[in-house]
Amino acid sequence: MSKFLEVENLNVSFPTEDGLVQATNEVSYSVGLGETLAIVGESGSGKSVSNLAVMGLHNAGSTNISGHAWLDLPSGRVDLISAKPEELRALRGKEMAMIFQDPMSALHPFFTVGKQIAEAWHLHNTGSKRAGLARAVEMLDLVGIPDASKRVNDFPHQFSGGMRQRVMIAMSLINNPSLLIADEPTTALDVTVQSQILQLIKDLQKEFNMAVIMITHDLGVVAEVADRVCVMYAGKIVETGGIDDIFYQSVHPYTRGLLASLPRLEQSSLGHRLLAIPGTPPSLINLPNGCSFAPRCAFAEHVGSGLCTSTTPKLELKREDQWARCHLGASDVSRISQLQIGATING
């Protein structure tokens, strides 16, 4: 059975004055109805760029895109990458929707939220103004805005950050899309509000059996919402697998490094040094030869004949349903980790 969205070998690059920015490189991922895929990675790793390509939101003139993004519609499979702009317009909002970190930038300051939400409905439905507004109230109510029938007449600045994100969710879901892409939807919010919004997305997903892609840099958020995870580094997916596999038996040294570097609330990490990953991510204009993570990787020296700095690893199946872009096998990685932990403890 095919998944609702299947992204295949997506490459997005931007020609700039300094050179070609290879923002995503052979990126493939998929998400099924009712499933949540988290895409996690550091700033600039290509999370937004890949999903903007799926939504057809890149500027065609200044962006090179290749690859496929199949949407499995009842009427047949559609490739979003080669689709015409008017086809995409018909699908956006109706079959797929995206919300962003900063809801204020997506809302018009001079129109009431009701008008803006209704507008999203009118794009794909024929009906009276009154019907549109009634639908807007229904949606505001659904996303937990108290007093929806009154608040529908308010302007965006009259809402708090968390409520604006609720408004965005209401607007993006008004036509019952089957795919919701949420790009750092809670990054600008406080933790107590963040947990409300994450819960809301989970509840709505269940109610409407949506496919959800959650883009985040926060492994805590990933742990909380995801069924499956893609870890991105320097424009590539370096590891992908089920949630528990990624958190408890990750194979890629970068994933392991990230998890080890986190200060944790639950265990008493008081007095322990964090295990930081040395160095910084590479420039996308001038990627290192071989594995992009090699300059920072503590495992590279265990790989023979300079392979890591000469040959780019492919995304390979390492364990059942778990892929990693690394020359090492799963058993090598856990063996070397043991060695390294031993070395740290013994000084």
Binding site: V191, T192, G220, A223, Y248, L259, L265
Partner: peptide
């Protein structure tokens, strides 16, 4: 409440 809202990077 604040502590309980912090997402923990440990799914279990």
């Amino acid at each position: 409440a604040l502590l309980s809202a912090v997402p923990v990077p440990d799914p279990k």
